[in-house]
Amino acid sequence: NRRVIAMPSVRKYAREKGVDIRLVQGTGKNGRVLKEDIDAFLAGGAKP
């Protein structure tokens, strides 16, 4: 169970979209999950 780095607003956005943030690959600094990562996940998967 890895620790997810994300701003509270991004965590809320993921919850609102029904996304398990632990499944999203973060592309920000130090692997931080960004809102754009949530959108990319919803569009068909995590960014490479």
Rank of each mutant, 00 (worst) to 15 (best):
residue 33 V to I: 15
residue 28 G to I: 01
residue 26 G to K: 02
residue 15 R to Q: 15
residue 29 K to V: 02
residue 33 V to T: 09
residue 36 E to T: 08
residue 7 M to Q: 02
residue 2 R to W: 06
residue 31 G to F: 09
residue 46 A to N: 15
residue 10 V to A: 07
residue 6 A to F: 07
residue 25 Q to K: 09
residue 46 A to W: 08
residue 32 R to S: 12
residue 26 G to I: 02
residue 31 G to V: 06
residue 44 G to T: 11
residue 48 P to V: 07
residue 16 E to P: 00
residue 16 E to A: 04
residue 3 R to H: 02
residue 48 P to R: 01
residue 37 D to P: 00
residue 36 E to W: 05
residue 6 A to K: 06
residue 37 D to A: 00
residue 44 G to M: 11
residue 20 D to M: 03
residue 7 M to C: 04
residue 22 R to N: 14
residue 18 G to A: 09
residue 39 D to G: 06
residue 41 F to G: 08
residue 20 D to W: 03
residue 36 E to Q: 07
residue 47 K to L: 06
residue 39 D to H: 03
residue 32 R to N: 15
residue 23 L to D: 15
residue 38 I to F: 00
residue 29 K to P: 07
residue 4 V to E: 12
residue 19 V to P: 00
residue 12 K to D: 14
residue 39 D to N: 01
residue 29 K to Q: 10
residue 15 R to G: 14
residue 19 V to R: 00
residue 23 L to R: 07
residue 15 R to M: 12
residue 36 E to F: 07
residue 16 E to R: 05
residue 28 G to E: 03
residue 43 A to C: 07
residue 39 D to S: 05
residue 17 K to P: 00
residue 5 I to G: 10
residue 38 I to P: 00
residue 11 R to K: 05
residue 3 R to W: 05
residue 38 I to S: 01
residue 37 D to F: 00
residue 18 G to I: 06
residue 25 Q to P: 13
residue 41 F to P: 02
residue 31 G to P: 03
residue 19 V to M: 05
residue 41 F to C: 11
residue 32 R to A: 08
residue 13 Y to M: 12
residue 32 R to C: 04
residue 35 K to T: 04
residue 17 K to F: 10
residue 9 S to Q: 04
residue 5 I to Q: 01
residue 35 K to V: 05
residue 29 K to R: 02
residue 31 G to N: 02
residue 18 G to Y: 05
residue 48 P to T: 15
residue 34 L to P: 00
residue 45 G to S: 12
residue 32 R to Y: 08
residue 30 N to V: 09
residue 43 A to F: 07
residue 41 F to K: 11
residue 29 K to N: 07
residue 19 V to A: 12
residue 19 V to K: 02
residue 30 N to E: 14
residue 19 V to I: 12
residue 40 A to I: 14
residue 40 A to H: 06
residue 31 G to M: 02
residue 46 A to V: 11
residue 30 N to S: 10
residue 46 A to Q: 09
residue 31 G to D: 14
residue 2 R to K: 14
residue 37 D to C: 01
residue 8 P to C: 06
residue 18 G to F: 02
residue 22 R to S: 15
residue 32 R to F: 03
residue 2 R to Q: 13
residue 38 I to R: 00
residue 47 K to A: 07
residue 44 G to F: 14
residue 30 N to P: 01
residue 11 R to Q: 14
residue 28 G to C: 06
residue 39 D to M: 04
residue 14 A to F: 00
residue 12 K to N: 09
residue 19 V to Y: 00
residue 19 V to C: 13
residue 27 T to M: 06
residue 2 R to H: 09
residue 14 A to K: 01
residue 7 M to N: 05
residue 28 G to S: 05
residue 11 R to E: 12
residue 9 S to M: 15
residue 6 A to W: 05
residue 28 G to M: 02
residue 19 V to L: 09
residue 2 R to M: 10
residue 13 Y to I: 06
residue 44 G to E: 13
residue 17 K to I: 09
residue 44 G to N: 15
residue 23 L to I: 15
residue 10 V to T: 04
residue 33 V to S: 01
residue 31 G to Y: 15
residue 46 A to M: 15
residue 19 V to E: 00
residue 17 K to E: 11
residue 11 R to Y: 06
residue 5 I to E: 14
residue 31 G to E: 08
residue 16 E to H: 01
residue 32 R to I: 05
residue 46 A to T: 13
residue 27 T to W: 02
residue 5 I to H: 02
residue 7 M to Y: 07
residue 47 K to Q: 09
residue 35 K to F: 09
residue 41 F to N: 08
residue 27 T to V: 03
residue 10 V to Q: 05
residue 42 L to W: 10
residue 5 I to T: 13
residue 13 Y to W: 04
residue 30 N to A: 08
residue 35 K to D: 03
residue 44 G to D: 12
residue 6 A to V: 09
residue 25 Q to R: 06
residue 47 K to R: 03
residue 7 M to E: 15
residue 22 R to L: 14
residue 34 L to Q: 15
residue 27 T to L: 04
residue 28 G to N: 01
residue 41 F to S: 10
residue 25 Q to V: 08
residue 46 A to C: 06
residue 40 A to R: 08
residue 9 S to H: 09
residue 21 I to Q: 01
residue 16 E to T: 06
residue 38 I to M: 01
residue 5 I to C: 14
residue 34 L to S: 04
residue 29 K to E: 12
residue 18 G to P: 02
residue 16 E to W: 03
residue 20 D to L: 01
residue 34 L to A: 09
residue 31 G to W: 04
residue 23 L to K: 08
residue 7 M to L: 09
residue 18 G to R: 07
residue 12 K to I: 15
residue 1 N to V: 03
residue 18 G to W: 07
residue 43 A to P: 07
residue 23 L to S: 09
residue 41 F to T: 10
residue 40 A to Y: 11
residue 45 G to R: 08
residue 33 V to A: 06
residue 13 Y to G: 02
residue 26 G to H: 05
residue 15 R to V: 12
residue 18 G to S: 11
residue 33 V to L: 08
residue 32 R to Q: 08
residue 7 M to I: 01
residue 12 K to T: 11
residue 30 N to M: 11
residue 29 K to Y: 01
residue 39 D to L: 04
residue 15 R to S: 14
residue 30 N to G: 09
residue 16 E to N: 10
residue 48 P to I: 15
residue 28 G to Q: 10
residue 1 N to D: 09
residue 1 N to K: 06
residue 24 V to F: 03
residue 33 V to E: 01
residue 28 G to L: 02
residue 12 K to E: 07
residue 24 V to C: 08
residue 42 L to D: 15
residue 43 A to S: 09
residue 47 K to V: 11
residue 27 T to I: 01
residue 6 A to Q: 08
residue 9 S to K: 04
residue 25 Q to I: 04
residue 10 V to H: 01
residue 15 R to F: 14
residue 29 K to L: 03
residue 7 M to S: 06
residue 11 R to T: 14
residue 46 A to R: 09
residue 39 D to T: 08
residue 47 K to W: 04
residue 28 G to H: 04
residue 41 F to H: 14
residue 5 I to M: 13
residue 5 I to L: 07
residue 1 N to S: 03
residue 47 K to T: 08
residue 30 N to H: 08
residue 25 Q to W: 10
residue 12 K to F: 12
residue 33 V to K: 12
residue 46 A to E: 15
residue 22 R to C: 15
residue 6 A to M: 06
residue 16 E to L: 02
residue 22 R to P: 10
residue 13 Y to T: 04
residue 7 M to R: 03
residue 22 R to F: 02
residue 27 T to H: 04
residue 6 A to N: 14
residue 37 D to T: 01
residue 48 P to H: 08
residue 10 V to K: 00
residue 3 R to V: 12
residue 41 F to D: 08
residue 35 K to E: 04
residue 20 D to T: 13
residue 3 R to C: 04
residue 16 E to F: 04
residue 14 A to T: 00
residue 31 G to R: 06
residue 37 D to R: 00
residue 26 G to N: 02
residue 45 G to I: 09
residue 8 P to D: 15
residue 37 D to S: 01
residue 19 V to G: 01
residue 3 R to T: 07
residue 41 F to Q: 13
residue 13 Y to V: 04
residue 42 L to I: 10
residue 5 I to N: 05
residue 20 D to F: 01
residue 27 T to C: 05
residue 45 G to D: 11
residue 21 I to M: 14
residue 20 D to H: 05
residue 28 G to D: 04
residue 43 A to K: 02
residue 21 I to G: 02
residue 12 K to Y: 02
residue 44 G to K: 03
residue 29 K to H: 02
residue 18 G to T: 06
residue 39 D to K: 15
residue 21 I to A: 07
residue 33 V to R: 01
residue 28 G to Y: 01
residue 36 E to S: 07
residue 5 I to F: 07
residue 41 F to R: 08
residue 37 D to H: 00
residue 24 V to R: 00
